[in-house]
């Protein structure tokens, strides 16, 4: 007698019987949230699909190994690709040591007073400064002030400023996650702060730092505005041979092609986007894999 059971469980007296409506609202709300989320995922898929359909036809060895050109069918991304690799290498060399050192100093060495707090605040504020502002600073300091011109090193220094806060914050989180007991154990054996940090803190925090660094570098790879500000060239028909050479990079090339009116150049841009996204995807996947691996180890 399911019906009588139902009536029996119904609360009478001072309560309105509103349970049906409430359940319906709850169900609708759940569907709504699910729908909205999957729409976001769908948009991502749509974006990737759109780009692939537009660009895949241009993707061949010739595209990868040609310099940019006025003629779409002759154009390629050789100099942009090489420029991006140069750039990312220089950025990594500059920003990783400084970033990790800062995080290490802040967490392991500095006194946790007012100044420490201010520096932390300063770093999180730096992380929120728009990239174009870094571009202006790079233009003023590196390109003009230090007369490094529109060189790779100008670009790399500018980008390093931009991603340093990201690296510091990620490294700090990884370092913070190292249990205090590890440090105490080392101190109790008569180790100095540096010995403790070098032998115990850094190795334990390494996967976390690496993940953060990879994500920060992948952000640098896609950044366009600061490079435009410092005047990375859009037409470079040679390969840079040293940090002082001028250069172009993938996002610059993409921007240049997208801003032209001709359809063919849009498709070329799509081709370059596929290459850029492939690089980013590999980097992100590596980061996610490392994170996953570490999480499992911690369990």
């Amino acid at each position: 007698m399911p019906n009588s059971e139902n009536t029996n469980l119904k609360k009478t007296g001072l309560y309105k019987d509103n349970i049906q409506t409430r359940r319906r609202i709850a169900a609708l709300f759940q569907y709504f949230c699910a729908l909205v989320t999957w729409t976001g995922v769908f948009l991502l898929a749509l974006l990737l699909y759109q780009v692939s359909v537009d660009g895949i036809q241009w993707l061949d060895m010739q595209f990868l190994s040609s310099f940019p050109s006025r003629f779409p069918y002759k154009a390629g991304i050789k100099s942009a690709l090489v420029g991006t690799f140069w750039l990312i290498t220089l950025i990594a060399i500059i920003s990783i040591p400084v970033g990790v050192a800062t995080a290490l100093y802040l967490h392991e060495f500095s006194r946790k007073g007012r100044i420490h707090k201010l520096i932390q605040l300063n770093i999180s504020n730096l992380a929120g400064v728009p990239s174009i502002v870094y571009g202006i600073i790079g233009l003023t300091i590196f390109v003009r002030g230090l007369a490094l011109e529109r060189s790779l090193i100008s670009g790399a220094l500018t980008m390093s400023l931009l991603i340093l806060p990201v690296i510091i914050i990620a490294s700090r989180e990884a370092i913070q996650a190292v249990p205090m007991s590890t440090r105490h154990a080392a101190f109790a054996l008569g180790a100095t702060r540096w010995q403790t940090a070098w032998a115990h803190v850094l190795p334990t925090a390494f996967p976390g730092i690496l993940t953060g660094v990879i994500l920060a570098l992948s952000r640098a790879i896609g950044e366009t505005a600061p490079l435009i500000m410092i005047g990375a060239l859009t037409y470079v028909a040679f390969l840079p041979e040293g940090p002082m050479d001028s250069f172009t990079a993938l996002p610059i090339q993409i921007f240049n092609w997208v801003s032209r009116p001709q359809e063919e150049f849009h498709e070329l841009a799509a081709g370059a986007i596929i290459v850029l996204l492939a690089v980013l995807l590999i980097m992100n996947a590596t980061a996610i894999y490392i994170r996953h691996k570490t999480e499992q180890k911690l369990k």
Partner: peptide
């Protein structure tokens, strides 16, 4: 069984149940 009714019966509303 709550007063003879199965708490986990198919037609029992767990939300309403928690009021009681």
């Amino acid at each position: 069984l709550y007063m003879g009714q199965d708490l986990y019966g198919n037609d029992i509303d767990p939300v309403a149940l928690r009021r009681r």
